[in-house]
């Protein structure tokens, strides 16, 4: 594995809730992600997956510990990251093309070939011809593909995805998973991908990071030894089954243990 692209060192994060109580979301998380590595993050809901992602995105800061990209500490959102949220969050008043161009406009990085670049991205996700449409004229899956193009338009080195397919139906979801792998094989990036689907986590990842329930900390990191390009046919393979079983045990085993206690 190449040198660390993203590094979390003893990161903890505590939130103050509305009633003044303290919520410890993350406790002492250390993780290094290599350049162009595909890492997925799984764990029970509320264990701090989004919090980790938002710290790497620079949207929030750790309460203690440091998060850095290529050695420099993350203090604010940085131009080398692109983010996809669970909901497409497209601007309802802008066309598909303008939605894809939005980050460039915000960063004052529009250039004469920006529109062409956006079109190329839309073609990559099978949305050629929809440039002028309004978001509401697109299905949920299509909207999420626009959001992926938007995250890629400024050619970030790092792609952060927070349950990007969580709101989609099962069929669209599998389709999008394969599409993401195809995009990733064409334009290698460092990807940190949050999901609560264990098969999705295994199929996509070089490594799966399993988090324990709140306060979130890393239960185990599982290497996935499956050849690429991947497909859902591999779900039956022993390597896939083994990884999935391990993750399931880590998540549900712990839950049963804590219930018994």
């Amino acid at each position: 594995m190449a040198a660390g692209m993203i590094a979390l060192e003893h990161v903890s994060r505590t939130f103050v809730s509305a009633d003044g109580g303290r919520i410890e979301a993350l406790r002492d998380v250390s993780l290094t992600i290599g350049r162009n590595e595909f890492v997925t993050l799984v764990g029970p809901s509320g264990c701090g997956k989004s919090t980790i992602l938002r710290i790497v995105a620079g949207l929030i800061l750790p309460s203690s510990g440091t998060a850095s990209i290529e050695g420099s500490v993350i203090r604010e959102p940085r131009p080398e990251t692109g983010i996809v949220f669970q909901a497409p969050t497209l601007l309802p008043w802008a066309t598909v093309l303008d939605n894809v161009l939005f980050p460039l406009r915000m960063m004052n990085r529009m250039s004469p070939d920006s529109a062409e670049r956006a079109r190329t991205l839309l073609k990559l996700v099978d949305l050629a011809g929809f440039e002028g449409n309004a978001p509401r004229e697109l299905s949920g899956g299509m909207q999420q593909r626009v959001a992926i193009c938007r995250a890629l338009v400024h050619d970030p080195d790092i792609l952060l995805m927070d349950e990007p397919f969580g709101a989609l139906d099962a069929l669209t979801r599998e389709e999008m998973t394969l599409e993401l792998l195809r995009i990733w094989s064409e334009r290698r990036k460092t990807v940190l991908f949050v999901t609560h689907s264990i098969p999705e986590a295994v199929l996509l990842a070089d490594r799966v990071v399993v988090l324990s329930p709140r306060p979130g900390s890393i239960a185990r990191v599982i290497e996935v030894d499956l050849p690429r390009p991947r497909s859902f046919d591999q779900e039956g393979s022993p390597a896939f089954q083994g990884a999935a079983r391990q993750i399931r045990e880590l998540i549900f085993g712990q839950r049963h243990a804590s219930r018994a206690a």
Partner: peptide, 14 residues
């Protein structure tokens, strides 16, 4: 304005 849109703006360094 939904907080996701505001967050999107922040992520794009608006």
């Amino acid at each position: 304005v939904p907080s996701e849109l505001i967050e999107l703006g922040r992520a794009c360094r608006a």
